[in-house]
Amino acid sequence: MSQILFYLLPETDKAPATTVPAHIDFACRLAAKLYRQKSKIFIYTDNQQDAELVDEHLWQFEPESFVAHNLQGEGPKFGTPVEIGFKPPTSGRPILINLSQNMPDFIRRFNQTFDFVPADETLKQQARERYKQYRAAGHQLSTEPAA
């Protein structure tokens, strides 16, 4: 069973000063914060395009917020503190950041999952669906405004 925390994104569809969707920007900042706390994280996306978007965004962070990370299939053998992928993870990690539109079926392997409710209507609707799926699967859920 995983602890799942949903962040509710405020009602603007773009993060300031970047072209990255707000929830992805927020997820990356969250990853940076967790990285500083020396956590090991897997960031799950729906497809390669999104994975590379996350990769690119992390790489462009200001130097003070550097995050050592890798895409699935690159980097050292046992991965880096932050791995990004659109396939199920191969190594065990305590924290999952879910950017996929569906409930990942490997979610039980993570102690803690972070998910997001974007402001965009379609995405918000999908997030609601996931919320229901998580609850049905018996995970512990909570929400918090993204700030």
Binding site: W59, P63, A68, H69, E74, G75, T80
Partner: peptide
């Protein structure tokens, strides 16, 4: 440069 902490 990307994947190791010392990249920072």
């Amino acid at each position: 440069l990307v994947t190791r902490g010392y990249g920072e």
